[in-house]
Design a protein around this nucleic acid. Structure first.
Length: 804
RNA sequence: GGGGAUGUGGUGGAACUGGUAGACACGCUUGGCUUAGAACCAAGUGCCGCAAGGCGUGGGGGUUCGACUCCCUCCAUCCCUACCA
């Protein structure tokens, strides 16, 4: 008589109990704390596979830590502002708020049905005034600290819809809705001086336990480079064009200077020159996204202007180049076609001089991109690049035509968005002067939309922005990266409406483990790190870094590409939860690939996960373990099972603890289950066999608990109620080291690195004994064939290799 | 264009520190159970070959007694590229 495994029933009752007991609600106590955070989702409607994977990883680790007596805090919330809500509002005629909140309610139920152990008492939603009130306060404090300023900056402008478009809304240079060619427009926007922290953002990467690739990506993004600012006097003028270069050693190779199409000189020239005017118009049609710009054909136009080379006094032509960014450096670059790929292509196209000023160690073909020895460089000839750079900077400094400079690739963070569904920027303009809204008047609440209205930007909502004559509110909203840059800290005091961070924050911060998609490796993580440092400097949080350890999980793919609606290759996790239960979906997710790697969705493997759970169910459900005594001694077969049980436990513990390698942990639990001999499962098996099986079942259920918590807890309570009072999640089992010792091993015998035989040997055998034994193996003897043995390599406990 | 990854059977993956390549699972084949099917159980399953044996971790080269692992080079795919989140 075996009861049928019914995941729906088991899971619903377990989830209900967990919530009733408040099992995952965390309070500071004297245990070691563990703040485990998974990146909160954008409430797009329903969970996708990436969420399921991310949150299962976090939950497995949280449950494992809880079993190891950590005080675990695992909260969840919603990154609730953003573009899709506005799109949905237009498409479905619901307000962004309604749409967002409906989605949250649905997705929250999905998270609960996955058995994720969140502390829902700390749930937060970024679109609620009680959250963004504090964000507005932080912005005010940033402003007071001098970290905020306004400047003109470029946006994609849709001339038909008269709106600013996000890069993803620009398709082949056209607005996605209107189809009109997008224009690049310059408007006044709010910026945050993240560059003030550039150096520290770089150096304190040493303090965190993050994957090396993420650290490298951040390093390269911040991009600290040593170089020089070099001033080129404009001919017949007192003015200069200042260019930054990391290669001042190539200064004798400069054959043109290129300025950005948005540089004020270019704009001035276009007023009197039709050709330049039409060129600038053409430039405005290229999307401002970096990837698009890089792919776009490099175009330029000669301004006819000349500048004076600071060392040779030669006249150099000034061009306008569509590849020069105004926002980066000075908006001016010096063109060295002999030693820069892009400049080389540009010069070849427009027949500009290409001079070699650095020797090449390998071949003479230009451009030579490596450093080397200078030539054609007057008195600097024969110096190496580095010392030449130094001396050239000295000369430029003396002439007051340049200076050595450290430059960052990182640019200040533009936080203004001209949209409705976002956090209002708390600024009031009095006759054009910007003033921050007083603290006691926060929050500036996002106005409700008029009934049946599409989401109109705040700039079209006079009721919102007009306070009185000459006094108006700011109508930009914040970039949603602002919302997600500090939520990790707010979780720790999410239920406190009188303080942004409180005593609990001190206890829980920093986040011990942060888990999320690799796609956030740069922007989100960099902004959050910046926020933490700025908040620290304002005395609001402690420590230098928000996230101690980082786990970046790979994408869930189908047919080799990211699941997406546009490709029509999405798989809805809900149907699998409904069909197989949450435990199976969790087990599948953890078994199919290691967390950092991308996971290829496979329908039939889900079936396999379900089968394994049923096997465990069938093993445990029909057992009756009354009256088992501790045996005095064990047979060899019994000891073998006990050894297998404890080596498995050791491996699983190691996989959880040091590698987050859940797929191999699960594989070894499966192996253990397969290793139980049939006669141990007999109803009338001996007491000692039952004892060993008992031990194995305990370890299987315990180690499975973080991954498949519902079924393991159910079976535990069923199986264990007679034997002990312990709750399954109360402790992680201990390895009995004495059971692990082995005296024999399988010796592999190689000849010239090829396997020619295997035999059983004892660990304590000497190399000589091993050699003699190996030579007697038939296939080894045939292959050795009296040949001269040049060398013998013996790796203890593993392998012996004869070199002939 | 720049930056970061990945590449192993029919499939997902394992091999953690340079030491038996393919654990575990899916699929498939055969057999058992069944009126039949599903489910379940047992055995087999990298490729070529009747076999002996040979080949084999994206391609090419190198270091080593020994390379999925280290080095060089090429190719393919994926992610990020500052207004998707």
């Amino acid at each position: 008589m075996t009861a049928e495994y019914n995941p729906k029933k088991i899971e619903e009752s377990a989830q209900k109990k967990w919530i009733e007991d408040g099992r995952f609600e965390a309070k500071p106590d004297d245990r070691e704390k563990y703040y485990c955070l998974s990146m909160f989702p954008y409430p797009s409607g329903k969970l996708h596979m990436g969420h399921v994977r991310n949150y299962t990883i976090g939950d497995v680790i949280s449950r494992y830590k809880r079993m190891n007596n950590f005080n675990v805090f695992q909260p969840m919330g919603w990154d609730a502002f953003g573009l899709p809500a506005e799109n949905a509002a237009i498409a479905n005629e619901v307000s962004p708020k309604e749409w967002t909140n409906d989605n949250i309610e649905h997705m929250k139920q999905q998270l609960i049905s996955l058995g994720l152990g969140y502390d829902w008492s700390k749930e937060l939603r970024t679109c609620e005034p009680k959250y963004y009130k504090w964000e507005q306060l932080i912005f005010k404090k940033f402003f007071e600290k001098g970290l905020v300023y306004k400047k003109k900056s470029l946006v994609n402008w849709d001339p038909i819809d008269e709106t600013v478009l996000a890069n993803e809304q620009v398709i082949d240079g056209k607005g996605w809705r209107s189809g009109a060619p997008v224009e690049i427009k310059e408007i006044d926007q709010w910026f945050i001086k993240i560059t003030d922290y550039a150096d520290e953002l770089l150096s304190s990467l040493n303090e965190v336990d993050w994957p090396e690739n993420v650290k490298t990506m951040q390093e390269n993004w911040i991009g600290k480079s040593h170089g020089a600012e070099i001033k080129y006097q404009i001919k017949d003028s007192e003015e200069y064009l200042t260019a930054f270069s990391t290669r001042p050693d190539t200064i004798y190779g400069v054959s043109f200077v290129a300025i950005s199409p948005n540089h004020k000189i270019a704009l001035n020239l276009s007023e009197h020159d039709k050709k330049i005017e039409s060129f600038l118009k053409q430039c405005k049609e290229t999307s401002s996204a970096e990837a698009d710009m890089a792919k776009a054909e490099k175009l330029g136009i000669d301004t006819g202007m000349k500048v004076i080379h600071p060392l040779t006094d030669e006249e150099i032509p000034v061009w306008i180049g569509n590849f020069v960014l105004l926002d980066y450096g000075t908006g001016v670059v010096m063109g060295v076609p002999g030693h820069d790929q892009r400049d080389f292509e540009f010069a070849s196209k427009y027949n500009l001089d290409i001079k070699q000023v650095i020797s090449s160690s390998t071949n003479d073909e230009l451009p030579v991109l490596t450093k080397g020895i200078l030539l054609n460089s007057d008195k600097y000839n024969d110096l190496d690049s580095d010392s030449a750079s130094k001396k050239i900077i000295e000369e430029l400094s003396e002439k007051k035509l340049g200076e050595g400079l450290i430059q960052f690739r990182l640019r200040d963070w533009g936080v203004s968005r001209q949209r409705y569904w976002g956090c209002p920027i708390p600024v009031i303009y009095e006759n054009g002067d910007a003033k921050l809204v007083e603290e006691n008047e926060l929050p500036v609440v996002l106005p409700e939309l008029p009934k049946d209205s599409p989401p109109i930007p705040l700039s079209q909502n006079e009721e919102f922005y007009k306070i009185s004559d000459g006094i108006e509110r700011e109508t930009d909203t914040f970039d949603t990266f602002m919302d997600s840059s500090w939520y990790y800290a707010r979780f720790t005091s999410a239920d406190n409406d009188s303080e942004i961070f409180d005593e609990n924050s001190k206890y829980w911060l920093p986040v011990d483990l942060y888990i999320g998609g690799i796609e956030h490796a740069i922007l989100h993580l960099l902004y959050s790190r910046f926020f933490h440092k700025a908040l620290r400097d304002m005395g609001m949080v402690e420590g230098n870094e928000p996230f101690k350890k980082l786990l970046t999980q790979g994408m869930v793919l189908k047919d080799g590409t990211k699941m997406s609606k546009s490709k029509g290759n999405t798989v809805d996790p809900q149907s699998y939860i409904d069909k197989y239960g949450a435990d199976t979906v969790r087990l599948y997710m953890m078994f199919t690939a290691p967390p950092e790697q991308s996971l290829e969705w496979s329908e039939s493997s889900v079936e396999g996960a379900s089968r394994f759970i049923k096997k465990v169910w069938n093993l445990v459900i029909c057992r009756n373990y009354e009256d088992i005594n501790i045996p005095d001694n064990f047979s060899k077969e019994e000891l073998d099972l006990r050894r297998k049980t404890h080596t498995t436990l050791k491996k699983v513990t190691n996989d959880f603890e040091t590698r987050f390698s859940f797929n191999t942990a699960i594989a070894s639990i499966m192996e253990l289950l397969n290793a139980i001999p049939d006669d141990f499962k007999d109803k009338d098996a001996s007491n000692s066999k039952k004892y060993c099986l008992n031990e194995t079942i305990i370890i299987i259920l315990k180690t499975l608990n973080p991954i498949a918590p519902h079924v393991s807890e159910f079976l535990w309570n069923h199986f264990y109620n007679l034997n002990a009072p312990e709750e399954i999640e109360s402790s992680w089992p201990k390895v009995e080291d004495s059971l692990l010792e082995v005296s024999e091993f399988e010796l592999v015998i190689q000849i010239n690195g090829k396997v020619r035989g295997k035999t059983t040997a004892r660990i304590e055998d000497t190399q000589n004994q091993i050699e003699e034994m190996a030579k007697k193996i038939e296939n080894v003897a045939i292959n050795l064939d009296d040949k001269n043995i040049k060398k013998v390599i013996y790796i203890k406990g593993k392998i012996i290799n004869f070199v002939i």
